[in-house]
Simulated assay, not measured.
Amino acid sequence: MKKVLLAVMLLSLLVAPVFAAGQSEGTAAPKQVVLRLADNQPLGYPTVLGDEAFARLVGEYSNGRIKVEVYPQAQLADEKSAIEQVQFGGIDFTRVSISPLASFQPLLNALQMPYLYRDADHMWKVLNGEIGQYFLDSMSDKGFVGLVYYDSGARSFYNTKKPIYTVADLKGMKIRVQESALMMGLVQALGAVPTPMSYGDVYSALQTGVIDGAENNWPSYDSSSHYEVAKFYSIDQHTRVPEMIIASKISMDKLSADDQALIKKAAKESQAVEVAAWAEYEKKSEAKVRAAGCQINTINDQAEFAAAMAPLYQSQLNADQQAWVAKIKAVK
């Protein structure tokens, strides 16, 4: 009898864990996946608002199973370091300008050439069409998944001396540029003197006459207070350099095809939020500098400026990139 009872007890001990495991597997909630997105801009900036919309949509479409945590203000890394970490899977997503991204995928230079786009509508037709998708897809060879383009407006010239209407008006002016062969070549092609300089030094350089001018978009002209010392802003919109959210291919490959699809869908849909936020941001900045008494003029005929870029297109782009530029310009 004792042997029978002992056998029953042993059997129950063996069966109990199996049953418990079966219960646990049947009722346990799916494990949440947490992904991190890096941005170098502050809270409330248009790209960060876009990031947050993307994160919210991923949460909605996955019923909370996938959570995207947004880290603004370069909390995780500066722009270049964030790109490198995404490439190696240390960070899952980052929002960056395509300008530094072009050092990883040179083909992107074809999207940021001066006087390339006729206007904002032309740019968005390119970026949200087959050409733009090709460039997003081209990132996979470099360890990234290109998800979506964001807006960063257009850059124009401003200076301390006079309005700019023609290429001749720029002749001999010392213009601050980023440390970029493309931007130095652009300014030089227009007859001005390119002066590479740290962004933080530009205000005092304008104030003291070390440089005559610089170039940037409305929000930067405003937030840097450069409008206080360089009162002439000439709208030529020489460059439109898109932003992009990229994902780590390593991170994406760990997800199911369905989860990858919902992330791509959420990214595409977040674009509208960022673009609207950017437009509002620009309006406020423009209104502020106009109210401060800055002299604003628009260069309506850019043909002369664009024609001056021909040597730059030849020196900066290879044959493949030049072919893409031709396709971009042909988009109606």
Rank of each mutant, 00 (worst) to 15 (best):
K268H: 14
A230E: 08
V241E: 09
A247P: 08
F232I: 09
K268D: 10
K264N: 06
K264I: 02
D236P: 05
D236T: 12
M252Y: 12
S223T: 08
T239K: 02
S224R: 01
K254C: 07
P242G: 03
A266C: 07
D253C: 03
L262T: 06
D259H: 02
I235Y: 06
Y233C: 03
A261F: 06
H226F: 09
S251V: 00
H238K: 01
Y227I: 14
S234H: 07
V241K: 02
D253I: 12
M244N: 04
A247C: 04
A266S: 14
S256E: 13
K265S: 08
D258Q: 04
V229C: 02
S223C: 02
D258V: 01
I235R: 08
D253Q: 08
K265H: 09
H238C: 09
Y227E: 09
I245C: 05
L255Q: 04
H226I: 10
K254N: 11
V229R: 08
R240K: 10
K231F: 03
V229F: 00
M244P: 04
L262N: 00
K265V: 09
I245W: 13
A267Y: 15
M244A: 10
D258H: 00
I250A: 04
S248W: 08
A261V: 06
K231A: 11
K231G: 07
A266M: 12
S256V: 10
I235K: 10
T239R: 00
A267R: 11
F232W: 13
I263Y: 01
A261Y: 03
H226N: 15
K249W: 08
H238P: 05
P242I: 07
Y233S: 05
A266W: 13
S234E: 07
